[in-house]
Amino acid sequence: MLARNETLPANLFRTGLAGTIAMAAAMGFGRFSYTPILPGMMSGVPLSPADAGFVASANFVGYLVGAVLAAYGWASGRERKVALLALAATAALLAAMALTSSVMVFAVIRFFAGAASAFAMIFTSSIVLSHAAAAGNDHVQAAHFGGPGAGIALSSVMVMLIGLGYHGSPDAWRADWIGGAIYAAVSLVAVWWLLPAGPVAAAQAGKEPAIVWSKPMLLLTGSYGLFGFGYVITATFLVTIARMDAAGQTVEFLCWFIAGVTAAVALFLWKPLVRPLGLGWVYIAALLVEALGVLATVLLPRSVAPLIGGALFGATFLAITAYGLQIGRRLSPASPRRAFAMMTAAFGIGQIVGPIVGGWMAERTGSFTAPTYVAAAALVICAVLVLPVVKKVS
């Protein structure tokens, strides 16, 4: 993802590589490896769909809490230390998941894992992106945000290989968590070696004024919060849907692997459309493509549904996340940090509610078809909400 060449100095290459590795560990494994491990947990623990949604939501609550805590100035000057400690906590908490069978303990562990992944992501990003901005290099930023997709793809490979080694053992899910912990621990060593000492120093911008809640900003924030709800049902249950449809082990592996690969290159894929279409229309287009991908997971033949759904999901969710925040900055140019915080909070609430609702509906109906329709409808509503905003940002 990050090619070393004459235009990219060695120190900048190291910085971008550190970001990619950290994001793969903190997000791809620390946050999203629950998705490919979940089917084994549901049969091996066992967990009901409602239990699975509850544990997933606990992780998202932790992520939201971590993001809010990270917004304060307590870590100023200590960003590298906090980022490394958060990666160490991620490794320990991944391992802890293998040591229990209690739903409540799972939820507590995933709550703290969510907070740790938020700290690792935010403080690593503050270092990597400041160096990229100072150098004016877009490749470092793209490589950094490709890290979660790379981690998702790697986690799917890990789960498949462990599954083959354990020959269907009901305890294979424990080995999956241990494998993720080992990956995170190795990543910690690499990031410790590669990551710069801290962010590039910048002049203090002073205290931002309160957000002016114009109608476009309200509509965008509502859309972004509903997006958190719509994307997360597929993000949590995609591999479980493939398992319940008896699509086969190969399809289970490939659907999350493809989601990771497409997520890793998503920003590269959408970037050429931003200039001719404008940010608003690209945001809307990505939401509608993701809605189609969500529907594909339950409407197409079971042999291909998770694969196409995974590809369209991976190709859109990071792009929607990034472009939605960029639109927020344009609508609130005097208060960009506050806009980021409010939109992230709305998104966080949506993704907390999504797994609970999806798991509950699946348990009541016996399948994930109904919650998937709800998720797709939510994504379409997201797109409709921002139609009046398009002219403001194009």
Results as ranks from 00 to 15, higher is better:
Arg80Gln: 07
Thr234Trp: 03
Val251Lys: 07
Ser156Phe: 08
Pro46Val: 06
Leu47Cys: 06
Ala377Lys: 06
Phe112Asn: 03
Arg330Glu: 14
Ile381His: 06
Leu161Met: 13
Thr35His: 15
Leu188Gly: 07
Gly163Tyr: 06
Trp213Val: 14
Phe237Ala: 05
Gly165Arg: 06
Ala150Ile: 14
Ala362Cys: 12
Leu195Cys: 13
Ala376Glu: 05
Ala190Asn: 07
Trp192Gly: 10
Gly179Ile: 08
Trp192Lys: 12
Ile320Met: 12
Gly28Leu: 07
Ser223Thr: 12
Gln351Pro: 06
Gly366Tyr: 11
Cys382Ala: 04
Ala172Gln: 02
Ser126Leu: 12
Leu325Val: 11
Trp360Pro: 00
Leu385Met: 15
Gln351Met: 12
Ala132His: 13
Leu226Ser: 11
Gly19Tyr: 08
Gly198Pro: 03
Tyr373Gln: 04
Ser102Thr: 12
Gly260Val: 05
Ala376Tyr: 05
Val186Lys: 09
Pro9Tyr: 07
Lys392Met: 01
Phe123His: 07
Leu299Ile: 01
Val386Asp: 07
Ala264Gln: 03
Gly293Leu: 00
Met104Phe: 10
Gly350Glu: 09
Leu194Cys: 09
Val159Trp: 00
Ile127Tyr: 09
Leu267His: 03
Lys215Met: 15
Phe253Glu: 06
Gly366Pro: 09
Met160Thr: 04
Leu331Asn: 10
Ala266Ile: 00
Ala91Asp: 02
Ala319His: 04
Glu6Thr: 12
Val357Asn: 11
Gly40Asn: 15
Ala235Trp: 05
Ser367Pro: 02
Ala83Asp: 02
Leu129Ile: 15
Lys215Thr: 14
Ala113Gly: 03
Asp51Met: 02
Val191Glu: 01
Trp256Tyr: 08
Met217Trp: 03
Val261His: 07
Ala242Asp: 08
Ala319Val: 07
Gly163Trp: 06
Gly366Thr: 07
Thr236Tyr: 12
Gly28Pro: 05
Ala185Ser: 10
